[in-house]
Design a protein around this nucleic acid. Structure first.
Lengths: 134, 134
DNA sequence: GACATAGTTGACGTTTACGTCAACGTAATG
DNA sequence: CATTACGTTGACGTAAACGTCAACTATGTC
């Protein structure tokens, strides 16, 4: 009766570790490693890990970070920006500052991509010209 | 009389290894490593390496690749797209295909950045709201 | 011409991000 | 109830990308 794939109990979808591994095309080893590095902290049912939609979102962020070449340490910092910290103005300011920094890094990557795109376009033109001349 | 910093001889600027290291804020070790991995192939004057503007451009590409999380193997492939290969139509087609793939990867990264940007904007809004309520 | 200033080639060390067993626990199933 | 499937915690291995010596060479400067 109880399925292993995501089920709706206690008000939200729950994922097993192998389920997440399939969905993101990574290994369970990687997921456990992310936890050991402080990027995830799933619930436990006995010794087994149970992942919430929030954990799912966190993993999605990690995967995106990886595609952008972010280290796990950087992704961990990013994740912490989405976690409720102490609610004083000073903490808020710190978080806002880190949000700004993250956006700056993303902007820099955006610029690099644009330049690379332009260079690739130029190169394609040159190749097509060379092809036409044959 | 001969300087160590870039000079104009034989029709182009020439850089020493430490000069490039300074300009790109990397170590000479890294530059030599890139060469050993087949990403650079500078001229030699005796045993000393001399880098051309083309080498400079290649290094710039490598650095951009690094900021985008590309492996050296990927950057090497990219670099080869800018090097004159055999001039037959079949080779051209292969290169064009790789150009297309590179652009696809860049586009994927661009999408990831956009999503992350949106999420950061949302998070900033939430934080500012929480700050106002205090 | 002794010496400081680049530069060179090994060779081994290090960090990050997992992969790969091994040895074991637990739970559903025929 | 033995088996199969899935999960767990170590522990060690590994690939990529350099860092860090060591030992040596070439050069130009006082």
């Amino acid at each position: 009766m109880t399925k292993n794939t995501p089920s709706s109990n206690s008000g939200g979808t729950i994922y097993t570790i192998s389920d997440l591994a399939q969905r993101f095309d990574i290994t369970t080893r990687a997921i456990r490693f992310y936890e050991s590095e402080g990027l995830l902290s799933p619930e436990r049912q006995g010794q087994k890990r149970l992942y919430s939609p929030r954990d799912y979102a966190t993993l999605k962020l990690i995967i995106r970070g990886k595609r952008l070449g972010w280290s796990l340490a950087q992704s961990r910092e990013l994740i912490q920006l989405y976690n409720p910290a102490e609610n004083n103005q000073q903490q808020y300011q710190k978080v806002l500052e880190k949000v700004r920094q993250s956006r700056e890094r993303l902007q820099e990557q955006m610029n690099d991509i644009e330049i690379m795109m332009i260079e690739l376009n130029d190169q394609e033109s040159r190749i097509r010209e060379a092809m036409d001349k044959q």
